[in-house]
Design a protein around this nucleic acid. Sequence first.
DNA 1: GCCGTGGCAAACGTCTGATGAATCGTCACA
DNA 2: TGTGACGATTCATCAGACGTTTGCCACGGC
Lengths: 232, 232
Amino acid sequence: MAATDKALAGLRQMIASGELGPGAKFPPEPELCDHLGVSRSSLREAVRSLGALGVIESRHGSGTYVSALDPAAIISRFSLSVELIPLEGVLELLEVRRVLEAHATAAAAARQDPELAERLGAILDQLESTTEAAEIQHLDAEFHNAICTAGGNPTVTALTDVIRGRGGHYRIFEPGADFDAIKRTSDRGHREILGAITSRDPAAAATAASAHIAQTEHWLRALRPNPQPALP
Amino acid sequence: MAATDKALAGLRQMIASGELGPGAKFPPEPELCDHLGVSRSSLREAVRSLGALGVIESRHGSGTYVSALDPAAIISRFSLSVELIPLEGVLELLEVRRVLEAHATAAAAARQDPELAERLGAILDQLESTTEAAEIQHLDAEFHNAICTAGGNPTVTALTDVIRGRGGHYRIFEPGADFDAIKRTSDRGHREILGAITSRDPAAAATAASAHIAQTEHWLRALRPNPQPALP
DNA sequence: GCCGTGGCAAACGTCTGATGAATCGTCACA
DNA sequence: TGTGACGATTCATCAGACGTTTGCCACGGC
């Protein structure tokens, strides 16, 4: 077996077997090299691999640790790869977001929380009064994130955040031909979602969220011939 | 900025800017080192990072290439990290699977494909006639995968596959106290899903799939005090 | 007694150079 | 024309050295 793969398997095994739980510290690199039978270069490449996946974490001057192994945190790491996916693939991902966010929005509507509705209303007030692309994107993210968080499943929130972040790199809200129409439709969609949440109607909330995101898919599809890639 | 991070940012930039599309070949390592201003060690660690995320791919003796950047392929890479998530987190993930798979199952029911129903029936015949844990797990995966594939969104299929694979490491179907009852309930759930698909009833299909996976969540929750970790 | 400072050791981060192993294209030969 | 051997290219791995950061502990001032 290749050296780096051997190191990778060894590290994963140490976690999977329960020898090292979340937050635990690995032995120093030289010791691990000896234990796994590989050079330090190979070991470090393996560590980087698992680091990129959010499974382990190296702290300069301190040591190498198992991460919290929290699903939401691990899913967030996906943004590093999702941001590089071409538009064609983003459309597939948006269906995932549509389904998950409809579910989370329904759950948020089911839980009766007046404070949430109030906060969402404040966000929409700001959102409707701005025309700057960056601010629109930020407030839109805040609105949807607050709803998903209220939905109660951090994993769902993390997934929808990652997908929304990817879509945001395509500039729907740049001032252009259809800017006014798109902005108006988007604002109306947000109000419908908030209305369903306020009136505690999960089914209506799911429908409104689904329709709102489907609308986004439609706009992105129109951009297909000429995508605007992400700039990190 | 740290050397490895600089290399990582440089590589991502080359892809994000469109300079290198899916399948494109990177310059040789020494050339990249010179271009990015880092040593080969640092560059290779950065390459491993992106490799773990499924974004790029090194072929010994040939070169380093941008991957296909296919969402399903990238999501599959998640299994490397998801398999290390503790049971507590798996339950959060299963909610994602439940919602997505209900959606995909409804879509599969909506598309009228007699061949699919026939194939699913054959799988269930085998599944119902075996009591071996490994075979149960394999046939169960095949059944759900076939449905999700028929649902039409490869990204959804990849995500549910990853999550199902994680759950499979907990041995629900080991011969034990409740084995017979669990197996019977599981078999019945599969038949209900197939029935809804055969009768082309998307709503019933979604409900059946959702209930079936909720049942799995219930069984896993019962294992919580004493999880059985994965063995790669 | 408390707190800030300085030094020391441990541990990760980076670089360099050399060697091994796999791939691919080329070219001579049948 | 097919094919096999060869060599150039490229990634894979190793070994060693040095830099940088962190964390701890003793020391001394307040």
